[in-house]
Amino acid sequence: MIRILYTYPYKNDMKNLIFLISFIMIGINSLGIDEKAEMKNLILKIRDESPKNFIIIPQNGTNIYFQKKGEVDKELLGAVDGITQESLFYGYPKYGEKTPYEGKKSLLKNLKILKSLDKVIMTVNYTNSNYGKWRSKNLAEDNSFLNYCPKDREVTEIVEDVFGKNTEDITSLSHAKNFLYLLNPEKFRHRAKYIDVLSKTTYDVLIIDLYFKGIELTKDDLDKLRVKPQGGRRLIIGYFSVGEAEEYREYWKEEWDKKLPEWILYENKNWGGNYIVKYWSKEWRGIIEEMLIKYIDTGFDGVFLDTIDTYESFGKEE
């Protein structure tokens, strides 16, 4: 099919060039890769390779829980404990901005359905204004969602205002009344200080990275974090990007800086240093397995699966 196009008499015409590119992409798609199905398979694989009570919380990409006719994918939904959505009320298209109604309409519809099926819904709204935080909290509460508003887009600081503080033991995600979302502790100079400050927060759930400035947290670190200062145990969930490779991770190889391997496609233009991957590739699955083992062995109660909406990126790029 491509060979015929190359002999087209008007091959220098821009329309024909676009036509050619379209046919090439059709050819690529015809190889049988269903990106949505492959992301589902990856999540199911993580579930299968995790302990029985290990918590799994994917973020964004809510359409993955729905089949073509709008029916809920019960197999996938049964594999996760909670679902997180960014910028539902605030933070899209920019930090601090109120998300337009059209931008949240379908998301909110999906989340309400998933909530009705007993899934914990967690929203991360990017605003630091008093009104934005108040409004986000109330809108989340109206829908029985949990809510967190980071101080900045890079999520580098701890928000001290805790809504729904309690002394109960949190043994299941469904028991949680609040959560902390801290991805980049770069503002802390020393790990000991970072752990100390975290341990003094009163959140029911801590979503944090396995690493502090390239050094893995230990079981002792997690033990210090596991008990809330007001009493009661909490859950510690490890951040885990499954749709993008990050050049600052220990799995990143120096030679990739010069030439990316075939399964790493291109850099995310919105997040420097993050690269869209073929998450169905053998190489990436191997990295996922190794990372998952580390989270389990270190004592995390579960993993927070970010960038599952990467499956939507392929269509956008095309």
Results as ranks from 00 to 15, higher is better:
Glu246Asn: 12
Leu44Glu: 07
Tyr148Glu: 07
Arg234Met: 10
Asn53Asp: 15
Asn184His: 10
Thr7Asp: 15
Val162Ser: 08
Gly103Tyr: 04
Asn29Tyr: 13
Lys193His: 14
Glu168Gln: 14
Phe240Tyr: 13
Gln230Ile: 14
Gly302Pro: 10
Ser136Pro: 04
Trp252Glu: 07
Asn63Val: 01
Leu146Arg: 01
Pro100Tyr: 02
Glu38Pro: 02
Tyr95Glu: 09
Glu283Val: 07
Thr84Met: 14
Phe314Trp: 13
Tyr279His: 02
Gly214Thr: 08
Glu254Met: 09
Tyr203Arg: 11
Ala192Asp: 15
Ser116Glu: 14
Ala37Asn: 11
Tyr194Lys: 02
Lys36Met: 09
Trp263Leu: 04
Ser281Cys: 00
Leu31Gly: 13
Ser172Gly: 03
Met291Trp: 10
Leu5Glu: 06
Asn147Thr: 13
Leu108Ser: 12
Met122Phe: 01
Arg191Cys: 10
Trp263Asn: 01
Asn125Lys: 01
Lys94Gln: 12
Glu75Pro: 03
Ser199Phe: 05
Ile121Asp: 05
Lys224Met: 08
Val80Phe: 10
Glu35Ser: 14
Lys177Gln: 14
Asp161Asn: 12
Val159Arg: 11
Glu318Tyr: 12
Trp134Val: 08
Leu260Gly: 08
Gly272Lys: 08
His190Ile: 15
Asp220Val: 09
Val303Arg: 01
Phe179Arg: 00
Leu222Glu: 00
Thr310Met: 06
Trp284Arg: 02
Asp34Cys: 06
Gly232Ser: 00
Arg3Ala: 15
Glu86Val: 05
Val242Ser: 09
Gly272Met: 01
Asp257Phe: 14
Trp252Gly: 12
Tyr101Arg: 03
Glu71Cys: 07
Gln230Met: 13
Phe19Met: 11
Asp220Tyr: 05
Glu86Gly: 08
Leu31Val: 06
Gly70Leu: 01
Lys137Pro: 10
Ser174Ala: 13
Gln230Ser: 10
Thr298Glu: 02
Ser87Phe: 02
Ile158Ser: 12
Ser313Thr: 15
Glu75Asp: 09
Leu42Arg: 00
Pro100His: 01
Gly273Glu: 06
Gly299Pro: 04
Asp73Ala: 02
Ile121Gln: 07
Ser22Ile: 11
Asp13Val: 12
Asp301Trp: 00
Gly103Asn: 08
Lys74Val: 12
Thr7Met: 11
Pro93Tyr: 04
Gly272Arg: 07
Ser50Tyr: 06
Ile308Cys: 00
Lys269Ser: 15
Val159Cys: 12
Lys133Trp: 04
Tyr203Gly: 07
Phe212His: 07
Asp161Ile: 13
Glu49Lys: 14
Ile264His: 01
Thr307Glu: 07
Glu283Thr: 02
Lys105Ser: 12
Leu139Gly: 08
Asn178Glu: 01
Glu262Tyr: 15
Cys149Asp: 11
Ile43Leu: 09
Leu182Thr: 05
Leu77Glu: 03
Lys177Gly: 15
Gly232Asn: 04
Ile46Asn: 00
Gln85Thr: 02
Gly70Asn: 05
Arg189Pro: 04
Thr123Leu: 05
